[in-house]
């Protein structure tokens, strides 16, 4: 992780798109932590915009073994934040790792959206927020990759 950018981009130049990704990931982190705490404390989570939180978060898909899915989400978002910050400051190795992680998260998001739409038949607003965050992160990472190739 200590490999710095050596050419093409100045070490001092901060890649703003990665900083934006870091900020966006904080939204996902907050959302995931809130869900994790609600899960750990056994609180009933009330949907304020749409109904369906109970059905989704009370379903068997809300956990993998004993671990709440939200806790894994929090870990993933914190990893995205860390890799984005490192990438923004020129740590080269952070960039492919970030792209791989965000890609994995996007696939997971698609799977969870499918479950909500076609299996559980309910949507949870906190899960949709997380899906939106991951989609934005994917767009940032993809957009940056495309721009880099063109240049």
């Amino acid at each position: 992780m200590s490999a710095h950018v050596s050419s093409g981009e100045s070490q001092n130049k901060i890649a703003w798109s990665y900083l934006i990704a870091a900020l966006v990931s904080l939204i996902g982190l907050g959302d995931a932590i809130y869900l994790t705490v609600q899960d750990l404390t056994g609180q009933h989570l009330r949907c304020t915009i749409i109904s369906g939180c109970s059905e989704v978060l009370g379903s068997s898909y809300a956990h993998i073994g004993p671990v709440p899915l939200a806790a894994m989400g929090a870990f993933a978002y914190f990893s995205v934040f860390s890799l984005s910050i490192l990438a923004a400051f020129g740590y080269r190795l952070a960039r492919p790792l970030l792209a791989a992680l965000v890609g994995l998260m996007f696939l997971m998001t698609l799977w969870l959206l499918y479950l909500q739409a076609f299996v559980i038949h309910h949507f949870c607003q906190y899960c949709l927020l997380s899906a939106a965050v991951t989609t934005v992160l994917t767009a940032i990472v993809l957009g940056r990759g495309i721009m880099k190739r063109r240049s």
């Binding site: 982190l29 809130y34 994790t36 705490v37 750990l40």
Partner: peptide, 26 residues
């Protein structure tokens, strides 16, 4: 060390926020 410092600060803030949320939900 600035990026590592930023990550450490966010990690501490995250742990603190989680702890406070857990306390408030007891």
């Amino acid at each position: 060390f600035l990026p590592l410092l930023i990550i450490a600060v966010v990690l501490v803030a995250t742990v603190a926020a989680t702890w406070m949320l857990l306390r408030s939900q007891k």
